[in-house]
Design a protein around this nucleic acid. Sequence first.
DNA 1: CGATTCAGTCTACAAGTGTTGACTGAACGG
DNA 2: CCGTTCAGTCAACACTTGTAGACTGAATCG
Lengths: 187, 187
Amino acid sequence: MRRLKLMATRVEQRQRTEARILTAARRLFGEHGFDRTTIRAIATEAGSDPGLVMRYFGSKEKLFAQAAAIPADGPIEGSPKQIAQQLTAALTDKLADEPAAALAALRAMFSYPEAAEEVRAAMTSQQRQVAAHLPGDDAVLRSGVIGALTLGLVISRHLVRLDGLDASPEELIAVVGPLIEELTTGA
Amino acid sequence: MRRLKLMATRVEQRQRTEARILTAARRLFGEHGFDRTTIRAIATEAGSDPGLVMRYFGSKEKLFAQAAAIPADGPIEGSPKQIAQQLTAALTDKLADEPAAALAALRAMFSYPEAAEEVRAAMTSQQRQVAAHLPGDDAVLRSGVIGALTLGLVISRHLVRLDGLDASPEELIAVVGPLIEELTTGA
DNA sequence: CGATTCAGTCTACAAGTGTTGACTGAACGG
DNA sequence: CCGTTCAGTCAACACTTGTAGACTGAATCG
């Protein structure tokens, strides 16, 4: 083994660098949005080079697509009350920590059309699943309101940092949970 | 009167041109956000010239500040139920038409810090007013949720154009109204 | 070991940006 | 009527951006 302990094999090195770039990209896209985040800034934060970022990810748009993929929620099924519980649990997660990738997508959504489509697709898909299991002829509308409420809460807490929403996730759920249950059952 | 009927006095001409620029700015800022809207595009849409836009408004940021001012809602007062009614009425307006200025502020909010502060200020001010009139020791939290719900609905309807929220304002209010009343009274 | 691949660096370019300043002609005020 | 003001136009600037390509040296492989 001629290799020093600080060195690594090429594939390891490549993976590490790509990972560092992706992490930096998520953080910066999430903090400043798509347009205000430059390839140069990402490269600097990752301790790398703009040219390398381009070679590894092809373009700024492709890098964003990889960095800002929205993690899908689990499947939705069961009775309205069970669905309410699943939605509430998912919301608790979203309120608890700040998923950098989703934040990047959310922040970019309003200035970068592709990101808007990403968010739209994620919300529409979930909404359809939910609506299919709800009673009442306004099920689609009610599930849409659930989506809007969720979106508003996440944005208000993580992006706007609205006063009053900086409570613990449990306190928030104590207030919002009943609303969601009401929306699912249609009372 | 030497002046032709198509011509106008200087102040008239100036006011007209400024108005055309502001209208164009609102539309483009609202549609594409702050960064992706160029002074050149605004000038072209207004049938004017970039240099003129600069001379009249000083800078792109100042133009945005004038174009994207958020109209304040009326004062909030009365019993919780009255407040719920006032909030619901204000929400109906926001859902009915698309106020170009507010949309511009909303869309820019996530990539342009000054716009975020504008939205934050508007929401915080309203939230404080509301919370002061609500019962319960979680009044601040509940009024925050009202703000988040409102924000989520406006964004989902006008910016994301989520399926299911394209109902008439009355249908939407029929679903959301009870939630707001519940949040104000604290049931 | 010798040839090749490839991670990483550096420089340069073409396009687009906000912004400035000079210029033109018509409206204005005395 | 003449000098001044000012709306509107045009061309250029300084700068930043994404991106491409040449180059270097170490890891890889037969």
